[in-house]
Measured scan of single mutants.
Amino acid sequence: LQLFIKTLTGKTSTVEMEPSDTIENLKAKIQDKEGIPPDQQRLIFAGKQLEDGRTLSDYNIQKESTLHLVL
């Protein structure tokens, strides 16, 4: 599924993920695209901070969801 990652600067990146992927996997993919180390990334979806060990489906993240990346 395609996700949009929006940064505080207003920049939006697109990443392709599976519902079974963990937040950790997602942060690794963001690191590949943006060069931001996972330990500096905080991802927010629906007002919640996402935890590394959980999966996208745990948070009911659907295709074309927008996640907010806070550093």
Score class of each variant (00 low, 15 high):
L1Y: 10
L1H: 04
L1R: 03
Q2L: 15
Q2P: 10
L3G: 02
L3D: 02
L3W: 01
L3K: 01
F4A: 05
F4W: 08
F4N: 09
F4Q: 08
I5A: 00
I5C: 03
I5F: 04
I5Q: 01
I5G: 01
I5T: 01
K6Q: 11
K6I: 14
K6P: 02
K6D: 05
T7M: 15
T7P: 05
T7D: 12
T7H: 14
T7Y: 14
L8S: 14
L8I: 13
L8K: 10
L8N: 12
L8P: 14
L8H: 13
L8Y: 12
L8E: 13
L8R: 11
T9A: 12
T9D: 14
T9M: 11
T9Q: 12
T9G: 13
G10K: 04
G10C: 05
G10V: 02
G10T: 03
K11E: 11
K11D: 09
K11P: 06
K11R: 10
K11H: 13
K11F: 10
K11Y: 13
T12N: 06
T12E: 06
T12D: 04
T12M: 13
T12V: 14
T12I: 15
S13G: 05
S13H: 15
S13E: 07
S13W: 15
S13R: 09
T14C: 08
T14V: 14
T14D: 04
V15K: 01
V15T: 03
V15F: 14
V15C: 03
V15S: 01
E16P: 05
E16W: 15
E16M: 13
M17Q: 03
M17H: 04
M17K: 01
M17S: 05
E18K: 13
E18N: 13
E18T: 10
E18D: 12
E18M: 14
P19H: 07
P19A: 10
P19D: 08
P19L: 11
S20E: 11
S20G: 13
S20C: 07
S20V: 05
S20F: 12
S20K: 08
S20L: 09
S20P: 03
S20R: 07
D21H: 05
D21P: 00
D21W: 06
D21Y: 04
T22W: 04
T22C: 02
T22H: 04
T22Y: 08
I23V: 12
I23G: 01
I23R: 00
I23W: 01
I23Y: 01
I23C: 00
I23H: 01
I23F: 02
E24Y: 12
E24G: 13
N25C: 08
N25L: 14
N25D: 13
L26V: 07
L26A: 01
L26D: 00
L26Q: 00
K27Y: 03
K27G: 00
K27Q: 02
K27F: 02
K27E: 00
A28V: 11
A28D: 06
A28R: 15
K29P: 00
K29L: 10
K29S: 05
K29I: 10
K29D: 01
K29V: 09
K29W: 10
I30W: 02
Q31W: 15
Q31L: 09
Q31M: 13
Q31H: 14
Q31F: 15
D32E: 14
D32L: 14
D32Y: 10
D32C: 07
D32M: 14
K33S: 12
K33E: 08
K33M: 15
K33W: 09
E34T: 15
E34I: 15
E34S: 13
E34D: 08
E34Q: 11
E34F: 15
E34L: 15
G35C: 04
G35M: 05
G35E: 03
G35T: 03
G35Y: 03
G35W: 03
I36Y: 13
I36S: 03
I36P: 04
I36W: 14
I36L: 06
I36A: 04
P37W: 06
P38I: 15
P38A: 15
P38W: 10
P38T: 14
D39R: 12
D39C: 10
D39L: 08
D39G: 12
D39W: 14
D39I: 09
D39Y: 11
Q40L: 11
Q41E: 01
Q41I: 13
Q41N: 02
Q41D: 01
R42G: 05
R42V: 15
R42D: 06
R42E: 08
L43T: 00
L43F: 07
I44S: 08
I44C: 10
I44G: 03
I44W: 15
I44Y: 15
I44R: 05
F45N: 02
F45A: 03
F45L: 05
F45H: 06
A46G: 12
A46D: 14
A46T: 05
A46F: 09
A46R: 14
A46C: 08
G47E: 05
G47W: 04
G47H: 05
G47S: 04
G47L: 03
G47Q: 04
K48G: 06
K48A: 10
K48R: 11
K48D: 06
Q49F: 14
Q49W: 14
Q49K: 08
Q49I: 15
Q49S: 09
Q49L: 15
L50N: 00
L50I: 04
L50Q: 00
E51D: 08
E51H: 08
E51Y: 07
E51P: 02
E51Q: 10
E51V: 07
D52T: 06
D52S: 07
G53M: 08
G53I: 07
G53E: 10
G53D: 10
G53V: 06
G53N: 12
R54L: 11
R54S: 06
R54C: 08
R54I: 05
R54A: 09
T55Y: 06
T55V: 07
T55K: 12
T55A: 07
T55I: 08
T55W: 04
T55Q: 08
T55C: 04
L56S: 01
L56P: 02
L56Y: 00
L56F: 06
L56W: 02
S57Q: 13
S57I: 09
D58T: 04
D58R: 01
D58G: 04
D58I: 02
Y59K: 00
Y59N: 02
Y59R: 00
Y59M: 03
N60G: 14
N60P: 04
N60E: 07
N60L: 07
N60F: 08
N60W: 05
N60K: 08
N60V: 04
I61C: 01
I61N: 02
I61S: 02
I61Y: 00
I61K: 02
I61R: 01
Q62C: 04
Q62Y: 09
Q62R: 10
Q62G: 13
Q62H: 10
K63I: 06
K63D: 15
K63E: 11
K63F: 10
K63T: 15
K63P: 15
K63C: 07
K63H: 15
E64M: 12
E64H: 14
E64K: 12
S65C: 03
S65K: 04
S65N: 07
S65T: 09
S65P: 03
S65H: 06
T66Q: 06
T66E: 07
T66A: 05
T66I: 14
T66S: 05
T66L: 09
T66Y: 07
L67C: 00
L67I: 15
L67N: 01
L67Y: 03
H68T: 14
H68P: 01
H68M: 14
H68Q: 11
H68D: 08
H68N: 08
L69E: 00
L69I: 06
L69A: 02
L69F: 03
L69Y: 02
L69T: 01
V70P: 01
V70I: 13
V70A: 07
V70S: 09
L71P: 09
L71R: 08
L71S: 09
